[in-house]
């Protein structure tokens, strides 16, 4: 087990470029409001896909559908990892077991645990010890626990959080908490990592660090990443492809360059690059 862990954080069995996640005609309603309308999207193995769009466009709703927190009224979400899994109606913990990990827009760490315990709780799906051995904490249970402790140290090393290992998460700064939350998702050894605004509310130095970690995870470990982000500089720099949402609909998709030039996207979200008052031109 330990050698398998240290080699990679990625548990996907697909080759780079193969379709990993397929979203087909997704529709999500809250009462009479369509939060998502006919969204179709494909995510390929080992790419970084960014989802952008104005506030309320349905970006987080889309992630929530993927991780099973919302269940769409129409459409299909299919996940490929050694075999095909239709996960439209799966429960969150079942989807987690397929290797889909995520972080949240508002930090949802386990506040009273230490950083270490938060990371270890990310290993939950890989731990096998039964209840009785856990209570004995002897032999196999202890060995398993120590293996995971060692594995988690790799994530601590990767995210450069050695100094705060034993600290309670609630006492950490916002930027560090965001980092720990990404670490907890990584501890799941994800095949697909969903990051909901990993850089929101950070200063430029913290953003650079975070962007570097995202690239490390993607390039060194080959983890597929879907991220929501508002900082266009970061998005254009690090993503391979971008999908643009507006009012629950997908209005554009493509490489950063294609999206930058897409007139519909400029109209809805990016604004004119050279106009000092993008709103005034519309009046």
């Amino acid at each position: 087990m330990p050698s398998e862990f240290t080699s990679t954080l990625n548990s996907s069995t697909l080759e780079a470029g193969q379709t990993q996640l397929k979203i087909d005609g997704l529709q999500l309603n809250f009462g009479g409001v369509a939060a998502l309308y006919n969204i179709s999207l494909e995510v390929k193995q080992s790419e970084i896909l960014a989802i952008i769009g104005p506030n309320g466009a349905g970006k987080t709703s889309l992630l929530n559908c993927i991780s099973g927190l919302y269940h769409p009224q129409r459409g299909k979400i299919t996940y490929f990892n050694s075999s095909e899994h239709e996960m439209t109606h799966m429960k969150p913990h079942q989807i987690a077991q397929l290797g889909v990990a995520r972080s949240f827009q508002n930090i949802e760490l386990f506040r009273h645990m230490t950083v270490l315990d938060n990371l270890l709780s990310g290993c939950h799906i890989h731990m096998k010890t039964d209840l009785f051995s856990s209570m004995l904490y002897w032999g196999k249970a202890q060995r398993e626990h120590i293996q995971f402790r060692r594995f988690v140290e790799d994530i601590i090393d990767l995210l450069e959080i050695e100094a705060i290992r034993y600290q309670t998460v609630g006492s950490l700064s916002y930027g560090l908490q965001k980092r720990v939350e990404m670490g907890r998702a990584l501890a799941m050894r994800p095949s697909l990592l969903l990051l909901d605004e990993p850089m929101a509310g950070m200063n430029s130095e913290e953003k650079e660090d975070m962007a570097r970690f995202v690239l490390d995870i993607n390039e060194e470990h080959g983890v597929t990443i879907v991220l929501i982000e508002h900082d266009m500089g970061v998005v254009m720099d690090i993503s391979d492809r971008i999908a643009v949402l507006n009012f629950g609909q997908k209005i554009g998709e493509g490489t950063p360059d294609e999206v930058r030039r897409n007139p519909v996207v400029i109209e809805a979200y990016l604004g004119e690059e050279h106009s000092p008052y993008p709103l005034r031109s519309k009046l």
């Binding site: 927190l69 290993c123 856990s134």
Partner: peptide, 29 residues
Amino acid sequence: ASVNLFRTRFGRAFIAIRDQDIAASVMGV
């Protein structure tokens, strides 16, 4: 038994449910 319980995945899952149940379910609990 109880102290050991909270050193392993069961206890950690319990605390996770207390602190942030949605996050816990997304972690596979």
